[in-house]
Nucleic acid binder design. Structure first.
Lengths: 344, 344
DNA sequence: CTGTTAGCGCTTTCAC
DNA sequence: GTGAAAGCGCTAACAG
């Protein structure tokens, strides 16, 4: 079997390897590798021969072999809970775009569709160089820590943890500004709708709500617990209509909640913002289509994704993890659901 | 260097390999592989030793090595143009969920963020067993054909092509039904807004619009060319308001178009559906929040993604490509923007 | 500028 | 039930 590589025998296009290409071009596999990787200089004539052979055989390299040899997967993993709503999609787009610039593939794992997410994440670790996980993807903290021992990890919008790098959007100050804005419209019974315990994002938004009250010497109410879903929004609106709550303003943990509440209220004849101001968080597409336009906060979601990909890449490159969470600024988007007059 | 594997020397946890695990457990690498893959039966005692070693060393297998050995990537590629709007996100969720069930990783490529998509796709082919590409991802047909020669490919909602398997949602009949519905409200100057040449989806929707007119012995108008964007919708609405077009009904190629048109019209004082009926396509979230609710068509997007993943897997498994495109049914969602009375 | 030759880490016969 | 050994296809010294 001397120099004869097994694979060189069968030049079936589907099985073209670097050996068949080398044979076909009359060069060594090293040369083929060189022209394909463009690292070293190769004589133009040889180069062409190789390229022709590649073309004729329709050679598609086996990524796994390269990865094994270079000891890098050249891929980043991203773990998200799901993709409904514009938030995660935008994040993913930012992540993918930056990863592409860095010549990294992205392999995606959605935990909501998994029965065994721990296994999924372990499996993911197997084929990427680094992993970004979204905070609320509900990955157990110890799993994250375990991963971290093996590969760079960055947590997006998640609980701050010891040695784990984190990136997030600013929540507290914008929430304070938003709540302040509503209060300054003269509202005095503003309710926060959402669950501060569901994660740091919401917790900080609630903290901002609290701070705005404190700033004005006002007393804030307990949060009205609700998940970030249309269903919970409708349910709460129903209870509100039934008189279970009393409020002249609603600060909702996100836009979906705000929108479903607002629509339900309006359909029942309530005037928004006349009877009740409603504000959200995220600035989803719908926020500008509804009437009144929803006052909300825009997050730099795309940038957040890009930042995560960036950090992953640098960590893989040997940089050491930052000890502080990186905070991206958010921006208040004032429309009219807060009680502001329409600009005409 | 005898039997001593280089890697076995350094048992640094970050570099744990099957060799270090074997050493640590006092067994051969074959045995480690066996317990990890669970293929063959291993004595329970040995099994435990191995598992303990894995645990202690924090062993994370190298996927590339396995892929190389088994000659499979155990991953599917998905090529989408982008992720804005719920359509692609939903498709991706369906794809990912099914791929997960089939134990396949998914590596994602978004072409809109790429300067050299051909390179991106070639690169993708390198690390997956099969690829699904979305029709409008603007992958040149010959590239697809080239890929096809090497790996299974399925085109989602794309131009039908010779040997390439395709999956899509039904467009023509639902469009015919939708257009018919509008016409049966007595509208006689219904315009189609969208570009039939932009792809098979829109082409078929326009064909349905035409058919509905034909069914009723009515003459249909030429399509009003517009891309599927909010901006194009607003621009068209402006022209309409300026009197450049005359219409009492608008059948828009998708919801985004419909929504931006409807909102612009309403903000200018027009009554929808009184003056003008407006219908869309896709049933995005906003469609049910606007007033009047947007009449549209719901596509089984999730299922479409799942179907693509399914087919990919079966093609990888050796099944031969189907020669006919698989069509998933769509469903008319009637709300009130078409002129129907609200159900109260 | 090009060829030879070790591996990269894992799976999988084939013996024992 | 377990070990030895031969690859999987590619990269990267190291010679020449």
């Amino acid at each position: 079997m001397a120099k004869q590589h097994p694979a060189s025998a069968e030049a079936r296009s589907a099985g073209a390897t670097i050996y068949s290409v080398a044979d076909h071009a009359g060069v060594s596999i090293a040369t083929v590798s060189r022209v394909l990787q463009g690292a070293t200089v190769v004589a133009e004539a040889t180069r062409q021969k190789v390229l022709t052979a590649v073309e004729e055989l329709g050679y598609v390299p086996t990524g796994a072999a390269r990865s094994l040899a270079v000891r890098h997967h050249e891929a980043h993993g991203l773990v998200l809970p799901e993709l409904s709503g514009p938030y995660y999609a935008e994040l993913l787009m930012g992540f993918e775009a930056r990863a592409a610039e860095l010549a990294q593939s992205v392999v995606l794992v959605l935990t909501n569709s998994r029965t065994d997410m721990a296994a999924a994440v372990r499996q993911l670790a197997t084929r990427v160089d680094a992993i970004a996980v979204f905070g609320s993807a509900a990955i157990p903290a110890d799993l994250v820590r375990l991963l971290r021992a093996k590969k760079p990890v960055v947590v997006i919008a998640g609980e701050p943890q010891d040695g784990i790098e984190a990136v997030a959007a600013e929540n507290r100050e914008s929430a304070r500004e938003l709540a302040g804005h509503v209060l300054d419209h003269g509202r005095r019974r503003a309710l926060f709708v959402g669950d501060p315990d569901s994660g740091p994002d919401i917790r900080n938004r609630y903290a901002g709500y609290l701070a705005a009250h404190r700033d004005r010497g006002l007393k804030a109410a307990e949060p009205v617990l609700a998940r970030l879903s249309e269903a919970d929004g409708t349910a709460f609106a129903q209870r509100l209509l039934a008189g279970e709550h009393e409020a002249d303003a609603l600060m909702c943990a996100n836009d979906e909640l705000a929108l479903s509440i607002m629509t339900t209220l309006q359909d029942a004849g309530r005037d928004v913002p006349g009877d009740l101001a409603v504000v959200g968080w995220d600035d989803v597409m719908t926020a500008r289509y509804v009437r009144p336009g929803l006052t909300t906060v825009r997050q730099p979601v795309h940038e957040l994704g890009a930042l995560a990909a960036d950090r992953l890449h640098e960590l893989v490159g040997g940089e050491s993890p930052r000890t502080y969470a990186q905070m991206l600024p958010t921006r208040l988007v004032v429309r009219t659901s807060c009680g502001c007059l329409p600009v005409t």
